[in-house]
Every structure is written in C-alpha cells, then in structure tokens.
Write a protein that binds this DNA or RNA. Sequence first.
DNA 1: ATCTTGACCTCTA
DNA 2: CTAGAGGCCAAGA
Length: 118
Amino acid sequence: MPASSTSESAEPSDFFQRVWAVVEEIPYGRVTTYGDIAEHLGTRSAARTVGWALNAAVGSGLPCHRVVNRKGALSGKLHFGGPYVMEDMLRSEGVTFTDDGRVDLEKHRWRPSPSAAE
DNA sequence: ATCTTGACCTCTA
DNA sequence: CTAGAGGCCAAGA
C-alpha cells in the first residue's frame, strides 16, 4: 500500500456521504429540511454544506427533491434542470403545496431515523 | 496557499 | 413582524 496520503480524490468527504445516507432514507411522499439533516449529522449550522451535498447528489439517484428549506420552499428547484421539475415530482408523490407555493411541512414533515445516522 | 460564493439555519436587536 | 450578523463545510477562481 502506498503510504501517499494525498487524499483519495474521486471520493466525497464523509459529510457528503452522511447527508446522502439520510436523504436516501426519506420515504415516499415525505419531505425534510436541511436543518434537520444537518442537526442529525451533529452540526445544525452545516445546513449549507447539506445543500452542496445535494447539489452533487443530483443525478446520483438520491431523492434530493424531497429536501426543502425551513420554510418548505423548493430552494434548489432550479438545480434540477427546471423550476417545475422539483414541484412536479413532489406533487406526483402526493405532496400538497400551500398557497404560497410551499410544501405542507405540517403534513409531510419527516425526520431522519437514528438508524440513518450511523 | 487565500478569498468568495453557495439548494441554509439560528440568534439577537 | 423585519433586519443584521455569525457559523458550518466544500468548491471554484
């Protein structure tokens, strides 16, 4: 084994993998918030990094569309390739929206499971 | 190597 | 209620 410790490029940081692990656990027709994920990881203020992880998760097979901000607004809908994609996906899953165009967190609020923490 | 931006959140005035 | 500041981690220039 080469002792070179020049980091293993092509491999995401642990933080990303943790975020993906939680997002992957999000059930159908359910949504969560960046803060909940960040807090579940141990750092509630790391919500920004969660967004970065999702940004890299787009197209990776992760339901990043089930992750919304604290207000339930689809902050990253533009990153899905279209402003209508994310909303359409959630609506297709049975998620309801408010008059403000926000997700009903009161009805679809989901929290990560302790088993997803790992 | 440093600085700025980014799918954010929470606290305080 | 709104406005401002701090903090977290990572990527791009």
